[in-house]
Design a protein around this nucleic acid. Structure first.
Length: 128
RNA sequence: GGAGUCGGCCGGACAGUCGCUGCCGGAUUUUAAUCCGGGAGAGGAAAGUCCGGGCUCCAUAGGGCAGAGUGCCAGGUAACGCCUGGGCGGCGUGAGCCGACGGAAAGUGCAGCAGAGAGUAGACCGCCUAAGCAGCUUAGGCUGCCGGCAAGGGUGAAAGGGUGCGGUAAGAGCGCACCGCGCGACUGGUAACAGUUCGUGGCAUGGUAAACCCCACUCGGAGCAAGACCAAAUAGGAACCCAUUGGUGUGGCCCGCACUUGGGUUCGGGUAGGUUGCUUGAGGCGUAUGGUGACAUGCGUCCUAGAGGAAUGACUGUCCUCGACAGAACCCGGCUUACAGGCCGACUCCCUCC
RNA sequence: GCUCAUGUAGCUCAGGGGUAGAGCACACCCUUGGUAAGGGUGAGGUCGACGGUUCAAUUCCGUCCAUGAGCU
Protein backbone atom coordinates (compact mmCIF):
# COMPACT_ATOMS: atom_id res chain seq x y z
CA UNK A 1 0.00 0.00 0.00
CA UNK A 2 1.21 3.48 -0.84
CA UNK A 3 2.23 5.94 1.87
CA UNK A 4 -0.79 7.89 3.05
CA UNK A 5 0.55 10.06 5.82
CA UNK A 6 0.07 13.82 6.01
CA UNK A 7 3.19 15.37 7.55
CA UNK A 8 3.97 19.07 7.74
CA UNK A 9 5.93 18.97 4.51
CA UNK A 10 2.68 18.65 2.59
CA UNK A 11 1.31 21.89 3.98
CA UNK A 12 1.83 25.54 3.20
CA UNK A 13 3.18 27.00 6.41
CA UNK A 14 4.13 30.65 6.27
CA UNK A 15 2.36 33.79 5.22
CA UNK A 16 4.90 34.37 2.48
CA UNK A 17 4.10 31.07 0.83
CA UNK A 18 0.39 31.87 0.97
CA UNK A 19 1.04 35.22 -0.63
CA UNK A 20 3.02 33.58 -3.42
CA UNK A 21 0.10 31.32 -4.29
CA UNK A 22 -2.42 34.17 -4.22
CA UNK A 23 -0.25 36.38 -6.44
CA UNK A 24 0.72 33.68 -8.96
CA UNK A 25 -2.41 31.55 -9.15
CA UNK A 26 -2.01 29.74 -12.46
CA UNK A 27 -5.30 27.84 -12.19
CA UNK A 28 -8.56 28.20 -10.37
CA UNK A 29 -10.99 25.39 -9.78
CA UNK A 30 -14.47 26.18 -8.52
CA UNK A 31 -16.69 23.86 -6.54
CA UNK A 32 -19.93 24.35 -4.71
CA UNK A 33 -19.02 26.46 -1.68
CA UNK A 34 -15.31 26.00 -2.31
CA UNK A 35 -12.55 27.45 -4.47
CA UNK A 36 -9.02 26.18 -5.06
CA UNK A 37 -6.09 28.28 -6.27
CA UNK A 38 -2.88 26.62 -7.36
CA UNK A 39 0.51 27.38 -8.81
CA UNK A 40 3.35 24.98 -9.72
CA UNK A 41 6.20 24.34 -7.32
CA UNK A 42 9.54 22.58 -7.63
CA UNK A 43 9.26 20.18 -4.69
CA UNK A 44 8.07 17.17 -6.66
CA UNK A 45 4.86 16.83 -4.67
CA UNK A 46 1.76 18.86 -3.88
CA UNK A 47 1.34 21.14 -0.88
CA UNK A 48 -1.93 22.47 0.45
CA UNK A 49 -3.10 25.33 2.62
CA UNK A 50 -6.56 26.07 3.91
CA UNK A 51 -8.36 29.38 4.30
CA UNK A 52 -11.76 29.14 5.91
CA UNK A 53 -12.75 32.54 7.18
CA UNK A 54 -15.15 33.27 9.98
CA UNK A 55 -17.03 35.55 7.65
CA UNK A 56 -17.95 32.77 5.26
CA UNK A 57 -18.34 29.90 7.73
CA UNK A 58 -19.77 31.20 10.92
CA UNK A 59 -19.46 28.37 13.41
CA UNK A 60 -16.14 26.94 14.57
CA UNK A 61 -17.57 23.45 14.38
CA UNK A 62 -18.27 23.83 10.67
CA UNK A 63 -14.87 25.37 9.98
CA UNK A 64 -13.11 22.47 11.67
CA UNK A 65 -15.29 19.94 9.90
CA UNK A 66 -14.57 21.40 6.45
CA UNK A 67 -10.85 21.56 7.13
CA UNK A 68 -10.78 17.95 8.29
CA UNK A 69 -12.67 16.79 5.26
CA UNK A 70 -10.37 18.71 2.95
CA UNK A 71 -7.24 17.36 4.61
CA UNK A 72 -8.58 13.83 4.49
CA UNK A 73 -9.32 14.16 0.81
CA UNK A 74 -5.83 15.52 0.09
CA UNK A 75 -4.22 12.80 2.18
CA UNK A 76 -5.98 10.01 0.32
CA UNK A 77 -5.49 11.55 -3.12
CA UNK A 78 -2.01 13.05 -2.73
CA UNK A 79 -0.30 10.67 -5.17
CA UNK A 80 -2.56 11.62 -8.06
CA UNK A 81 -1.98 15.36 -7.63
CA UNK A 82 0.69 17.19 -9.62
CA UNK A 83 3.52 19.18 -8.01
CA UNK A 84 1.57 22.34 -7.20
CA UNK A 85 0.85 24.53 -4.20
CA UNK A 86 -2.88 24.59 -3.56
CA UNK A 87 -4.87 26.99 -1.41
CA UNK A 88 -8.44 25.98 -0.71
CA UNK A 89 -10.82 28.81 0.14
CA UNK A 90 -14.36 28.72 1.42
CA UNK A 91 -17.20 30.64 -0.17
CA UNK A 92 -20.30 31.91 1.55
CA UNK A 93 -22.65 29.13 2.56
CA UNK A 94 -20.01 26.42 2.72
CA UNK A 95 -21.04 25.62 6.28
CA UNK A 96 -24.45 24.36 5.15
CA UNK A 97 -23.02 21.56 2.98
CA UNK A 98 -23.09 18.02 4.32
CA UNK A 99 -20.10 15.69 4.35
CA UNK A 100 -21.04 13.69 1.24
CA UNK A 101 -21.47 16.81 -0.87
CA UNK A 102 -18.15 18.26 0.26
CA UNK A 103 -16.31 15.03 -0.53
CA UNK A 104 -17.82 14.82 -4.01
CA UNK A 105 -16.93 18.46 -4.66
CA UNK A 106 -13.34 17.96 -3.56
CA UNK A 107 -12.97 14.79 -5.63
CA UNK A 108 -14.18 16.56 -8.76
CA UNK A 109 -11.94 19.55 -8.08
CA UNK A 110 -8.82 17.43 -7.82
CA UNK A 111 -9.64 15.72 -11.14
CA UNK A 112 -10.06 19.03 -12.93
CA UNK A 113 -6.91 20.39 -11.31
CA UNK A 114 -5.00 17.37 -12.54
CA UNK A 115 -6.17 17.90 -16.12
CA UNK A 116 -5.44 21.64 -16.09
CA UNK A 117 -2.00 21.08 -14.64
CA UNK A 118 -1.23 18.52 -17.33
CA UNK A 119 -2.30 20.95 -20.04
CA UNK A 120 -0.30 23.77 -18.42
CA UNK A 121 2.84 21.63 -18.21
CA UNK A 122 2.53 20.60 -21.84
CA UNK A 123 2.13 24.22 -22.86
CA UNK A 124 5.18 25.42 -20.95
CA UNK A 125 7.27 22.55 -22.28
CA UNK A 126 6.23 23.25 -25.87
CA UNK A 127 7.19 26.91 -25.38
CA UNK A 128 10.52 25.87 -23.94
C1' G B 1 -53.51 7.46 37.18
C1' G B 2 -52.93 12.71 35.88
C1' A B 3 -50.69 17.61 36.57
C1' G B 4 -46.53 20.03 38.67
C1' U B 5 -42.04 21.89 41.80
C1' C B 6 -36.93 21.40 43.26
C1' G B 7 -32.01 19.14 43.22
C1' G B 8 -28.31 16.00 40.92
C1' C B 9 -26.32 13.16 36.66
C1' C B 10 -25.61 11.63 31.38
C1' G B 11 -24.87 14.09 26.47
C1' G B 12 -24.66 7.29 21.55
C1' A B 13 -21.79 2.31 22.61
C1' C B 14 -18.28 -1.43 20.82
C1' A B 15 -14.63 -3.41 17.18
C1' G B 16 -11.34 -2.91 12.85
C1' U B 17 -8.46 -0.03 8.86
C1' C B 18 -6.04 4.59 7.24
C1' G B 19 -4.41 9.31 9.38
C1' C B 20 -3.14 13.99 13.01
C1' U B 21 -0.51 16.34 17.85
C1' G B 22 2.27 15.97 22.43
C1' C B 23 4.52 12.33 26.14
C1' C B 24 7.45 7.68 27.52
C1' G B 25 10.84 3.64 25.85
C1' G B 26 13.94 1.75 21.91
C1' A B 27 16.61 1.96 17.05
C1' U B 28 19.17 4.74 12.86
C1' U B 29 21.82 9.27 12.86
C1' U B 30 26.83 14.74 13.56
C1' U B 31 22.33 17.77 14.75
C1' A B 32 17.77 18.12 12.61
C1' A B 33 14.85 14.27 11.39
C1' U B 34 12.84 9.32 10.43
C1' C B 35 11.05 4.47 11.99
C1' C B 36 9.01 0.80 15.71
C1' G B 37 6.23 -0.09 20.28
C1' G B 38 3.19 1.80 24.40
C1' G B 39 -0.11 5.18 26.34
C1' A B 40 -2.93 10.16 26.23
C1' G B 41 -5.86 13.58 23.36
C1' A B 42 -12.40 19.21 23.51
C1' G B 43 -17.37 20.92 26.74
C1' G B 44 -21.58 21.20 29.99
C1' A B 45 -21.84 25.02 28.13
C1' A B 46 -15.18 24.88 25.53
C1' A B 47 -19.79 30.16 23.60
C1' G B 48 -21.14 35.46 25.05
C1' U B 49 -17.01 38.45 27.32
C1' C B 50 -21.23 40.42 31.73
C1' C B 51 -18.50 40.29 36.70
C1' G B 52 -14.40 38.53 40.09
C1' G B 53 -9.41 36.69 40.90
C1' G B 54 -4.45 34.42 39.85
C1' C B 55 -0.14 35.55 36.70
C1' U B 56 3.06 39.45 34.08
C1' C B 57 4.91 44.62 33.34
C1' C B 58 4.45 49.62 34.94
C1' A B 59 7.04 51.42 42.13
C1' U B 60 6.48 47.32 46.60
C1' A B 61 0.51 50.30 43.98
C1' G B 62 1.23 55.08 48.02
C1' G B 63 -1.97 60.08 49.10
C1' G B 64 -5.84 63.51 47.17
C1' C B 65 -9.57 65.05 43.61
C1' A B 66 -12.46 63.27 39.67
C1' G B 67 -14.80 58.77 37.87
C1' A B 68 -17.04 53.85 38.15
C1' G B 69 -19.48 49.97 40.75
C1' U B 70 -22.23 47.63 44.69
C1' G B 71 -26.62 48.51 48.05
C1' C B 72 -32.19 44.42 53.61
C1' C B 73 -29.14 41.28 57.50
C1' A B 74 -25.61 37.44 58.78
C1' G B 75 -22.22 34.06 56.86
C1' G B 76 -19.08 31.39 52.83
C1' U B 77 -15.00 32.51 49.58
C1' A B 78 -8.66 34.14 46.90
C1' A B 79 -12.47 37.48 45.25
C1' C B 80 -17.19 38.79 43.19
C1' G B 81 -22.48 41.95 40.86
C1' C B 82 -21.67 34.73 42.86
C1' C B 83 -23.43 31.11 46.60
C1' U B 84 -25.86 29.68 51.48
C1' G B 85 -29.16 30.76 55.54
C1' G B 86 -32.53 34.35 57.49
C1' G B 87 -35.89 38.90 57.12
C1' C B 88 -39.42 41.83 54.30
C1' G B 89 -42.65 42.42 49.87
C1' G B 90 -45.20 40.02 45.67
C1' C B 91 -47.21 35.46 42.90
C1' G B 92 -49.21 30.41 43.46
C1' U B 93 -54.60 25.88 46.38
C1' G B 94 -49.63 23.83 47.37
C1' A B 95 -44.50 21.88 46.86
C1' G B 96 -42.22 26.28 45.70
C1' C B 97 -40.87 30.67 42.70
C1' C B 98 -39.58 35.97 41.86
C1' G B 99 -37.42 40.72 43.81
C1' A B 100 -30.94 46.67 41.68
C1' C B 101 -34.81 45.37 48.51
C1' G B 102 -30.30 51.89 51.75
C1' G B 103 -32.08 57.21 52.18
C1' A B 104 -37.69 61.32 49.50
C1' A B 105 -39.20 64.86 57.73
C1' A B 106 -30.04 67.39 53.83
C1' G B 107 -31.07 69.89 49.50
C1' U B 108 -32.18 70.77 44.05
C1' G B 109 -35.18 69.16 40.11
C1' C B 110 -39.20 66.52 37.08
C1' A B 111 -44.60 65.15 36.10
C1' G B 112 -47.00 66.20 28.65
C1' C B 113 -52.52 65.98 27.96
C1' A B 114 -56.84 66.20 30.96
C1' G B 115 -58.50 68.59 35.35
C1' A B 116 -61.15 73.60 39.79
C1' G B 117 -56.72 71.93 41.94
C1' A B 118 -50.35 68.11 40.91
C1' G B 119 -47.89 69.69 46.70
C1' U B 120 -47.71 75.72 51.98
C1' A B 121 -53.99 71.77 48.13
C1' G B 122 -58.22 73.24 45.59
C1' A B 123 -63.90 75.36 44.39
C1' C B 124 -65.96 73.39 37.90
C1' C B 125 -70.61 70.75 38.93
C1' G B 126 -72.32 70.49 43.76
C1' C B 127 -73.88 70.89 49.33
C1' C B 128 -75.34 74.78 53.18
C1' U B 129 -77.86 79.66 54.48
C1' A B 130 -76.61 79.01 61.34
C1' A B 131 -74.19 84.22 62.21
C1' G B 132 -74.03 89.48 59.52
C1' C B 133 -76.36 92.93 55.68
C1' A B 134 -80.35 94.17 52.12
C1' G B 135 -85.21 93.29 49.93
C1' C B 136 -90.15 90.89 50.12
C1' U B 137 -93.47 88.95 53.76
C1' U B 138 -98.56 89.40 59.27
C1' A B 139 -95.66 85.33 60.82
C1' G B 140 -93.47 80.94 59.19
C1' G B 141 -90.44 81.70 55.36
C1' C B 142 -88.36 83.15 50.35
C1' U B 143 -84.55 85.79 47.31
C1' G B 144 -79.82 88.19 46.91
C1' C B 145 -75.06 89.67 48.96
C1' C B 146 -71.13 88.58 52.26
C1' G B 147 -69.71 83.79 53.13
C1' G B 148 -68.89 78.48 54.80
C1' C B 149 -67.68 73.14 53.12
C1' A B 150 -64.33 69.16 51.54
C1' A B 151 -68.81 64.58 52.21
C1' G B 152 -70.76 63.32 46.59
C1' G B 153 -69.80 63.80 40.99
C1' G B 154 -66.24 64.51 37.29
C1' U B 155 -60.48 64.61 35.42
C1' G B 156 -56.15 61.89 35.91
C1' A B 157 -51.12 57.08 36.47
C1' A B 158 -51.55 59.73 41.05
C1' A B 159 -56.49 64.24 44.39
C1' G B 160 -53.33 64.93 51.07
C1' G B 161 -55.52 57.71 55.92
C1' G B 162 -60.14 53.73 55.97
C1' U B 163 -65.00 52.13 58.27
C1' G B 164 -68.78 53.41 61.70
C1' C B 165 -71.03 56.57 65.30
C1' G B 166 -71.42 61.32 67.27
C1' G B 167 -71.48 66.22 65.72
C1' U B 168 -73.09 70.27 62.31
C1' A B 169 -76.50 75.05 58.68
C1' A B 170 -73.72 71.80 55.59
C1' G B 171 -69.29 69.55 56.65
C1' A B 172 -64.52 68.24 58.33
C1' G B 173 -59.57 63.77 62.96
C1' C B 174 -63.65 68.42 64.83
C1' G B 175 -64.47 64.35 68.80
C1' C B 176 -64.77 59.00 69.92
C1' A B 177 -64.21 53.44 68.84
C1' C B 178 -61.78 49.83 65.76
C1' C B 179 -58.11 49.21 61.83
C1' G B 180 -53.81 51.43 59.55
C1' C B 181 -49.46 54.83 60.32
C1' G B 182 -45.30 57.55 63.03
C1' C B 183 -42.36 57.94 67.66
C1' G B 184 -40.73 55.89 72.41
C1' A B 185 -40.29 51.86 75.85
C1' C B 186 -40.38 46.45 76.60
C1' U B 187 -39.71 41.27 74.86
C1' G B 188 -37.37 37.73 71.20
C1' G B 189 -33.28 37.70 67.73
C1' U B 190 -25.74 38.44 66.52
C1' A B 191 -28.59 41.45 63.01
C1' A B 192 -32.15 42.67 59.27
C1' C B 193 -36.69 42.47 61.61
C1' A B 194 -40.88 40.78 64.35
C1' G B 195 -44.51 40.94 68.50
C1' U B 196 -48.07 43.56 70.42
C1' U B 197 -48.74 43.54 76.42
C1' C B 198 -47.74 49.33 77.08
C1' G B 199 -47.50 54.58 76.43
C1' U B 200 -47.90 58.60 73.13
C1' G B 201 -48.88 61.59 68.68
C1' G B 202 -52.88 62.85 66.61
C1' C B 203 -53.13 62.24 60.52
C1' A B 204 -48.43 64.90 59.65
C1' U B 205 -44.33 62.17 55.86
C1' G B 206 -47.97 61.66 47.84
C1' G B 207 -44.55 59.64 43.43
C1' U B 208 -39.72 59.59 41.13
C1' A B 209 -32.91 58.28 43.62
C1' A B 210 -32.21 52.24 36.70
C1' A B 211 -33.14 62.13 37.88
C1' C B 212 -29.03 64.99 40.20
C1' C B 213 -27.76 63.79 44.95
C1' C B 214 -26.69 61.97 50.36
C1' C B 215 -24.84 57.77 53.25
C1' A B 216 -21.93 53.07 53.72
C1' C B 217 -18.51 49.84 51.36
C1' U B 218 -15.25 48.47 47.13
C1' C B 219 -12.06 49.71 42.91
C1' G B 220 -4.43 52.09 40.42
C1' G B 221 -3.60 51.03 34.87
C1' A B 222 -2.93 47.59 31.10
C1' G B 223 -3.45 42.85 29.32
C1' C B 224 -0.16 36.18 27.32
C1' A B 225 -0.53 40.19 20.69
C1' A B 226 1.20 40.66 28.96
C1' G B 227 6.17 39.73 29.67
C1' A B 228 11.14 37.14 29.69
C1' C B 229 15.27 34.97 27.11
C1' C B 230 18.43 33.49 22.84
C1' A B 231 20.37 34.82 18.33
C1' A B 232 21.46 38.48 15.12
C1' A B 233 20.45 41.02 9.12
C1' U B 234 20.83 46.41 8.98
C1' A B 235 21.86 50.46 12.21
C1' G B 236 24.71 51.79 16.80
C1' G B 237 24.31 57.36 12.60
C1' A B 238 25.09 62.59 10.17
C1' A B 239 23.50 67.87 9.76
C1' C B 240 20.55 71.97 11.63
C1' C B 241 17.19 74.03 15.27
C1' C B 242 14.66 74.24 20.12
C1' A B 243 14.09 73.27 25.45
C1' U B 244 16.90 72.32 29.79
C1' U B 245 13.64 72.78 38.11
C1' G B 246 12.97 70.05 31.93
C1' G B 247 11.75 65.21 29.58
C1' U B 248 10.16 60.07 29.73
C1' G B 249 7.66 56.18 32.32
C1' U B 250 1.09 54.09 33.01
C1' G B 251 -4.78 55.16 33.51
C1' G B 252 -8.37 61.72 33.61
C1' C B 253 -5.54 65.28 36.66
C1' C B 254 -2.23 66.82 40.83
C1' C B 255 1.36 65.08 44.36
C1' G B 256 4.73 61.31 45.03
C1' C B 257 8.08 57.57 43.00
C1' A B 258 11.65 55.59 39.26
C1' C B 259 14.85 56.53 35.15
C1' U B 260 17.32 60.17 32.46
C1' U B 261 19.25 64.74 28.70
C1' G B 262 14.86 65.15 25.75
C1' G B 263 12.17 66.82 21.33
C1' G B 264 11.50 68.48 16.01
C1' U B 265 12.99 68.58 10.60
C1' U B 266 15.97 66.49 6.51
C1' C B 267 19.16 62.49 4.64
C1' G B 268 20.61 57.31 5.18
C1' G B 269 19.49 52.29 7.07
C1' G B 270 15.78 48.98 8.78
C1' U B 271 11.02 46.87 10.49
C1' A B 272 14.16 37.96 9.56
C1' G B 273 13.43 34.46 13.20
C1' G B 274 13.45 31.03 17.39
C1' U B 275 12.70 29.52 22.56
C1' U B 276 9.83 30.34 26.75
C1' G B 277 5.43 31.92 29.31
C1' C B 278 2.15 26.52 28.64
C1' U B 279 -0.18 23.69 32.11
C1' U B 280 0.18 20.33 39.15
C1' G B 281 -4.15 23.43 39.98
C1' A B 282 -7.86 28.40 45.23
C1' G B 283 -7.14 20.43 40.99
C1' G B 284 -10.32 15.88 40.75
C1' C B 285 -12.23 11.39 43.34
C1' G B 286 -13.22 8.71 47.95
C1' U B 287 -13.78 9.01 53.13
C1' A B 288 -14.11 11.06 58.27
C1' U B 289 -15.21 15.27 61.33
C1' G B 290 -17.51 20.29 62.23
C1' G B 291 -21.65 23.24 60.36
C1' U B 292 -29.13 24.01 59.20
C1' G B 293 -26.29 25.16 54.71
C1' A B 294 -22.83 27.46 51.24
C1' C B 295 -18.29 25.54 52.87
C1' A B 296 -13.95 24.31 55.86
C1' U B 297 -10.29 20.87 57.86
C1' G B 298 -7.77 16.00 58.17
C1' C B 299 -6.42 11.33 55.74
C1' G B 300 -5.94 8.29 51.38
C1' U B 301 -5.55 8.20 46.17
C1' C B 302 -5.06 9.96 40.86
C1' C B 303 -2.26 13.04 37.02
C1' U B 304 -6.60 13.93 33.37
C1' A B 305 -5.43 18.28 26.05
C1' G B 306 -1.46 21.82 25.35
C1' A B 307 -1.73 23.03 19.24
C1' G B 308 0.89 27.10 16.60
C1' G B 309 -2.90 28.22 9.45
C1' A B 310 -3.70 25.53 14.63
C1' A B 311 -4.30 18.18 16.46
C1' U B 312 -9.99 14.27 18.14
C1' G B 313 -11.36 12.85 11.84
C1' A B 314 -12.86 9.60 7.68
C1' C B 315 -14.40 4.80 6.13
C1' U B 316 -16.44 -0.16 7.33
C1' G B 317 -19.34 -3.46 10.54
C1' U B 318 -22.85 -4.56 14.75
C1' C B 319 -26.57 -2.69 18.31
C1' C B 320 -30.07 0.94 20.25
C1' U B 321 -34.24 5.02 22.09
C1' C B 322 -31.12 6.75 15.39
C1' G B 323 -27.80 11.04 18.43
C1' A B 324 -29.35 18.26 20.18
C1' C B 325 -26.49 22.75 21.20
C1' A B 326 -21.93 23.07 19.71
C1' G B 327 -14.80 22.96 19.12
C1' A B 328 -9.81 24.48 24.12
C1' A B 329 -5.68 28.80 22.56
C1' C B 330 -2.56 31.71 29.74
C1' C B 331 -5.45 29.60 33.82
C1' C B 332 -9.36 29.43 37.45
C1' G B 333 -14.48 30.93 40.29
C1' G B 334 -19.30 32.69 38.85
C1' C B 335 -23.33 34.67 35.82
C1' U B 336 -25.95 34.68 31.18
C1' U B 337 -27.36 32.48 26.65
C1' A B 338 -28.11 27.69 23.25
C1' C B 339 -29.55 22.49 23.73
C1' A B 340 -32.51 16.11 20.81
C1' G B 341 -33.39 12.96 24.37
C1' G B 342 -32.78 10.16 28.85
C1' C B 343 -31.84 8.55 34.16
C1' C B 344 -32.06 9.09 39.65
C1' G B 345 -33.86 11.25 44.23
C1' A B 346 -37.10 14.43 47.34
C1' C B 347 -41.73 16.88 47.58
C1' U B 348 -46.83 19.13 46.28
C1' C B 349 -51.95 19.19 44.30
C1' C B 350 -56.21 16.57 42.02
C1' C B 351 -59.00 11.96 40.87
C1' U B 352 -59.99 6.67 41.81
C1' C B 353 -59.62 2.09 44.75
C1' C B 354 -58.55 -0.60 49.47
C1' G C 1 -7.95 35.44 21.09
C1' C C 2 -8.27 40.57 23.27
C1' U C 3 -10.31 45.69 23.17
C1' C C 4 -14.01 49.03 21.36
C1' A C 5 -18.07 51.37 18.53
C1' U C 6 -22.91 51.47 16.05
C1' G C 7 -28.22 49.75 15.14
C1' U C 8 -34.29 55.43 14.13
C1' A C 9 -38.49 56.22 7.01
C1' G C 10 -36.10 53.13 0.68
C1' C C 11 -30.83 56.05 1.65
C1' U C 12 -27.83 59.69 4.86
C1' C C 13 -28.51 61.33 9.71
C1' A C 14 -31.01 64.49 14.14
C1' G C 15 -33.69 63.59 18.58
C1' G C 16 -31.23 61.58 25.49
C1' G C 17 -38.34 60.55 29.56
C1' G C 18 -44.47 63.07 27.55
C1' U C 19 -47.67 63.22 19.68
C1' A C 20 -40.85 60.58 16.15
C1' G C 21 -38.31 64.62 12.84
C1' A C 22 -34.86 66.89 8.64
C1' G C 23 -32.57 66.34 3.73
C1' C C 24 -32.55 63.21 -0.62
C1' A C 25 -35.77 59.66 -2.94
C1' C C 26 -41.40 58.28 -3.93
C1' A C 27 -46.82 59.63 -5.33
C1' C C 28 -50.27 63.54 -6.73
C1' C C 29 -51.25 68.75 -7.96
C1' C C 30 -49.56 73.79 -9.70
C1' U C 31 -46.15 76.12 -13.11
C1' U C 32 -44.57 74.87 -18.97
C1' G C 33 -46.56 73.88 -25.62
C1' G C 34 -43.53 69.64 -23.14
C1' U C 35 -39.27 68.30 -19.73
C1' A C 36 -35.96 69.85 -15.88
C1' A C 37 -35.63 73.33 -11.94
C1' G C 38 -39.11 75.72 -8.49
C1' G C 39 -43.71 75.78 -5.29
C1' G C 40 -47.65 72.98 -2.69
C1' U C 41 -49.94 68.49 -0.66
C1' G C 42 -49.35 63.51 0.90
C1' A C 43 -47.83 58.52 2.02
C1' G C 44 -44.16 55.74 4.30
C1' G C 45 -41.60 53.73 11.18
C1' U C 46 -43.12 46.75 16.05
C1' C C 47 -36.92 53.44 16.83
C1' G C 48 -32.38 45.62 16.13
C1' A C 49 -34.89 41.72 19.86
C1' C C 50 -36.50 40.38 24.83
C1' G C 51 -37.10 41.64 29.91
C1' G C 52 -36.99 45.45 33.97
C1' U C 53 -37.50 50.73 36.40
C1' U C 54 -41.37 54.54 35.71
C1' C C 55 -48.05 56.90 35.53
C1' A C 56 -45.41 56.92 30.79
C1' A C 57 -39.22 54.26 27.47
C1' U C 58 -36.72 55.61 20.83
C1' U C 59 -34.51 57.83 25.35
C1' C C 60 -32.73 54.98 31.72
C1' C C 61 -30.84 49.74 33.27
C1' G C 62 -29.80 44.49 32.12
C1' U C 63 -29.36 40.33 28.70
C1' C C 64 -29.17 38.68 23.79
C1' C C 65 -28.76 39.41 18.15
C1' A C 66 -26.59 41.64 14.05
C1' U C 67 -22.93 45.05 11.69
C1' G C 68 -18.31 47.57 11.67
C1' A C 69 -13.39 48.97 13.50
C1' G C 70 -8.54 48.47 16.09
C1' C C 71 -4.45 45.37 18.25
C1' U C 72 -0.04 40.27 15.22
Amino acid sequence: MAHQGFPRGLRILTAGEYRHVFDNASFKVHGKGLLALACPNTLGHARVGLVFSKKNVRRAVDRNRLKRLTRESIRLGQHRLPAVDIVVLSKRGAGELDNDTVQRQLHGMWRRLEQEAKRHLAATQSIA
